[in-house]
Design a protein around this nucleic acid. Structure first.
Length: 583
RNA sequence: GCCAGCGUAGCUCAGUGGUAGAGCAGCGGUUUCGUAAACCGCCGGCCAAGAGUUCGACUCUCUUCGCUGGCUCCA
């Protein structure tokens, strides 16, 4: 489809979804005449509307509301638009406090109202011509939502719905949701025995099981090698540090909500570190640095602890203790652009290595409350922009969304099913170098403040693994697969041959296992398949005699029988080159 | 933290005021088998925790903990 046509379709869908939210509001009003209405916009795939109702909704209410919506749609009543003065609007919505609040904030002298049937709502529009144009609708969930997203306001009741052009498109969407549930990293994490999070140990704290640990270690080794290759120095810093350090940094002030309470160690207060930067700064500061030494890049897979409210914890992607793939770059201002360019290159290399394709780049600029002068911000933001352009990346500006200490670049990428994930982030820091007096000696023999860059390219091991599990649906590429080859002896008399081959594979650095159970091969194949093991080698009389193996992929595809040595070599090569598959 | 829903065996789920059930997994046997589930048997639960109502609570009420979907926030 041509881009403009695609866009037109999107707009039309959005209009229809927005109209669907009005129809839902009408249905809700029929059920609760005293309902107060918040807002009801179109969102991705559907719409929502926020209501203030006399009683709480439960999921059983949805079918009734949906039923009412269907009758409104079947009646095919027209949407009519009317312009009224603000004064008139206030009269019209006299019993609707939320609408009044919105009217009061509008700059225009007139507001538009839309009516369908007996239901009137203040709305910018546009809408479809009549309710009959709303095709396939389904209400999916209820939720509490603060009025205007502010937790100091009253919590309203939100109903989410989805709406599409055709029933087929709706069904497709529901099927996609089902597929996403099937790939949910929490579900696959348990099924594939990768990790667990247990109440008994503590919510938001991850226990990595052997198989999950293999994947993590492979990624970490890859990450470290690549960083060393790119001129980073690997460092390690402790998980606890004296609280005073965090007062100096300003975290105690700006970051208090995320910090755990201090513990007393021989009369001194210590806290779990929420970030790795201070350790790196103190390493840097153990000696004087010449301008010639810069840039210095310290990298650490650093585990940090942050308090997260109980309601926001989610599998591996939102936890209370996590390991960032962190690094801090200390450089001169004139080196900043090259350094940012280098990080962008590394970030893209990582995205590519894990086969993510769609990504979106955001550049966040100066917020109201910030450290550093506007001029320095302006200059640094310009440098980030230049680096992005040099890398040939298109990006969007997120005005005022920078961290208080400097502008930043965020890259979001999409998993195979189109779910968006927070990926690499690069932040310039104007706050810490002056606070900790982080300097170098310049050509002029004087001390100069360094420019500091915080960056991650994966985010955190926990969140990144969540992404990967869902991206691959648990079927990891060969180099990451916890078990790479499963040997399946046809009968007990083939155990010896299977063990011999497994031994040779292991000697070649390939993770191989023999299924020694007294089961039929159908059963063993099914098991291996469910475990998403890349290759199954069925070995029986034929193979033992000829020194060959019968290779089956986890996709179910059967490869030609082949000499074992050739198979071993191909697997070794595929692992080394981190390709998805052999041949 | 807030709103709603949920919490029964390792997993997936039945049960609904009268002292708990299935399939899979696990364990013990039998079967030695050629590309997605062989057969028989056994074990397994303070029904999330605590309090209350009741002659009697997995079931009803309250509190706490946790999980799920949102809100807010973020690696």
């Amino acid at each position: 489809m041509a881009p403009e046509k695609e866009q037109a379709k999107e707009t039309r869908l959005e209009t229809m979804r927005h109209s669907a939210s009005h129809v839902m509001a009408e249905a809700v009003k029929a059920m609760f005449p005293e309902a107060k209405f918040g807002i009801g916009p179109a969102i991705e795939a559907g719409f929502y509307y926020d209501f203030d109702l006399p009683r709480t909704l439960n999921p059983d209410d949805l079918p009734a509301i949906e039923e009412k919506m269907r009758s409104i749609i079947a009646a095919d009543t027209p949407f009519t638009r009317k312009e009224v003065t603000k004064e008139e609007a206030r009269r019209l919505f006299a019993d609707q406090p939320y609408k009044i609040e919105l009217i009061d904030e509008l700059d225009d002298e007139t507001v538009s109202v839309y009516q369908q049937g007996t239901f009137t709502d203040m709305c910018r529009g546009p809408h479809v011509n009549s309710t009959g144009e709303i095709k396939a609708v389904k209400l999916v969930s209820t939720a509490g939502a603060y009025w205007r997203g502010d937790e100091h306001n009253k919590m309203l009741q939100r109903i989410y719905g989805v709406a599409f052009d055709t029933q087929e498109a709706l069904d497709e969407h529901l099927a996609r949701l089902k597929e996403m549930a099937r790939r949910d990293h929490r579900k696959l994490g348990r099924e594939l025995d990768l990790f667990s999070i247990q109440d008994e140990f503590g919510p938001g704290l991850v226990l990595w099981h052997p198989k999950g640990a293999i994947i993590r270690r492979e990624i970490e080794d890859f990450w470290k090698d690549e960083h060393v290759r790119r001129g980073y120095d690997i460092v390690y810093t402790p998980h606890l540090a004296r609280m005073e350090l965090w007062r100096t940094s300003g975290h105690l002030e700006f970051y208090l909500d995320y910090l755990y309470s201090p513990m007393d160690v021989e009369g001194q207060k210590y806290i779990m570190k929420p970030m790795n930067c201070l350790g790196h700064i103190l390493i840097y500061k153990t000696k004087l640095h010449s301008y010639r030494e810069l840039p210095i890049r310290y990298a650490e897979l650093g585990t940090v602890y942050r308090y997260e409210r109980s309601g926001v914890l989610h599998g591996l992607s939102r936890v209370r203790g996590f390991t960032q793939d962190d690094a801090h770059i200390f450089c001169r201002f004139d080196q900043l652009e090259d350094e940012i360019t280098g990080v962008l290159d590394l970030a893209l290399f990582m995205i590519d290595s894990f086969q993510f394709s769609n990504y979106q780049v955001m550049l966040s600029t100066r917020p109201d409350k910030c450290a550093g002068s506007p001029e320095v911000w302006e200059k640094a933001t310009g440098i980030l922009r230049k680096a992005l352009e040099r890398a040939g990346l298109s990006y969007e500006i997120d005005p005022g969304e920078g961290v208080f200490y400097g502008p930043k670049i965020d890259i979001k990428f999409e998993s195979a099913l189109g779910k968006a994930w927070q990926g690499p982030t690069i932040q310039v820091d104007f706050n810490l170098p002056p606070r900790f007096d982080v300097t170098y000696i310049g050509e002029d023999g004087q001390e100069h403040s360094v420019v500091m860059v915080h960056r991650t390219v994966l985010g955190s091991m926990e969140r990144f693994l969540a992404t990967l599990i869902e991206h691959y649906g648990g079927a990891f590429p060969l180099w990451l697969a916890p078990v790479q080859v499963k040997l399946i002896p046809v009968a007990d008399r083939h155990l010896e041959y299977a063990h011999k081959l497994a031994g040779e594979l292991k000697a070649a650095g390939i993770r191989a296992e023999v299924d020694t159970r007294a089961e039929r091969i159908n059963f063993k194949i099914r098991q291996a398949q469910l475990e998403k093991i890349p290759y199954m080698l069925v070995v029986g009389d034929k193979e033992a005699e000829a020194g060959t193996v019968s290779v089956r992929r986890r996709s179910g595809e059967q490869l030609a029988d082949q000499p074992f040595d050739g198979f071993k070599k191909k697997v070794s090569e595929a692992i080394a080159s981190r390709t998805m598959d052999i041949v």
